[in-house]
């Protein structure tokens, strides 16, 4: 539904987005991850037509954003960063304007408007001027604006930024409820959000794509994926050398009586460890296999010297 072909953006001499290509299909929720200033918003602004790419292009449902910008934009719902809305209008007045701008008038306009209001839980504030609303409501007004025309492609720039946990939950539930019928791109730097709603993740650093995969497959890249975490009783001697001898073990970290065994690759390390323990009649107080950690993968991929893993 959305294909980006080697998008590039230069701001004077700064190469803000470098050769970014990806596809999003219906039913996918693509999480766009990256540090601040990595080029997430710039990429989204190019897709929505607010910025013109320096080179490259994109197609929205087959419509080229450069050759047929209006047709492409008709198929996009866009929530810009910081959710800008016309403050002096009422919620209803603003949404009516958007409906009209989307070519939805009369009965069709009212039906769409009602549905967007219902999905965004705005019933109680329809006649209030937007500048009297809280940040959470403003965000939802802008979200209602984005979904009003029921677009096949939804582009959301930090949809939960600045919201309290309850409001975040509401917005995430909304996104999930729409996911099946749309292609959704959302940018965020909240990693838990990615795990909660995204089916696929793109990580962008310094303008380049550095990762593209499911949250699960990215977690597998983490040093923590399939690592073994054990704690032994006080009187146990130093076992570091013993664990280092395991074939799958890359590294051992020891903090008093706690041992962390990192594998070369997730897989056989837990079995090998349990076999070793029973062979030596060792019984740990606690034994667990850790999952991969997205924050660690994120840090490794987006910082030059990201190879610093700290134990929790």
């Amino acid at each position: 539904m959305l294909e980006a072909h080697s998008l590039n953006k230069w701001f004077d001499r700064i190469h803000a987005v470098k050769d970014v290509s990806f596809r999003v299909e219906q039913g996918e929720v693509l999480g766009f991850l990256g540090p601040n200033g990595a080029g997430k918003s710039t990429t989204m602004r190019m897709l929505t037509g607010f910025l013109t790419p320096s080179s490259g292009t994109a197609r929205i449902c087959g419509h080229d954003i450069l050759a047929a910008p209006i047709e492409a934009r008709k198929r996009i719902g866009y929530l810009p960063e910081n959710a800008p809305v016309y403050d002096d209008m009422t919620v209803l007045g603003f949404l009516r304007f958007i409906a009209e701008a989307r070519g939805l008038s009369g009965v069709a306009g009212t039906t769409h408007l009602r549905k967007a209001v219902e999905l965004s839980h705005l019933d109680g504030v329809l006649n209030q001027p937007i500048d009297t609303l809280s940040k959470g409501f403003r965000q939802r007004v802008c979200l209602a604006q984005a979904i009003l025309h029921d677009p096949p492609v939804l582009i959301l720039d930090e949809p939960t930024d600045g919201l309290d946990p309850n409001q975040k939950h509401v917005v995430r539930t909304m996104i999930q409820s729409m996911a099946a019928t749309k292609a959704i791109i959302l940018s965020t730097h909240i990693l838990e959000e990615v795990e909660a709603v995204c089916t696929r993740v793109l990580i962008i650093a310094n303008g380049s794509l550095v990762a593209n995969g499911t949250p699960a497959s990215l977690k597998q890249q983490s040093e923590w994926a399939g690592a073994v975490d054990m704690t032994f009783p006080e009187n146990t001697g130093d076992l570091t050398a013993l664990f280092k001898g395991l074939a799958s073990c890359k590294r051992v970290e020891k903090q008093t009586q706690r041992y962390l065994l990192f594998p070369h690759a997730p897989g056989r390390l837990p079995q090998e460890t349990t076999a070793l323990l029973s062979a030596h009649h060792l019984s740990p107080l606690a034994f667990s296999v850790t999952e991969g950690r997205l924050d660690e993968v994120f840090r490794t991929l987006t910082t030059p010297a990201g190879k610093t893993s700290k134990t929790p």
Binding site: R45, T48, G49, F50, I70, E71, R73, K74, I76, Y78, P80, P84, V85, I98, A101, R102, G103, C142, Q145
Partner: peptide
Amino acid sequence: ELLLTLPF
């Protein structure tokens, strides 16, 4: 940004 990404 809102205005210029509407379909006109």
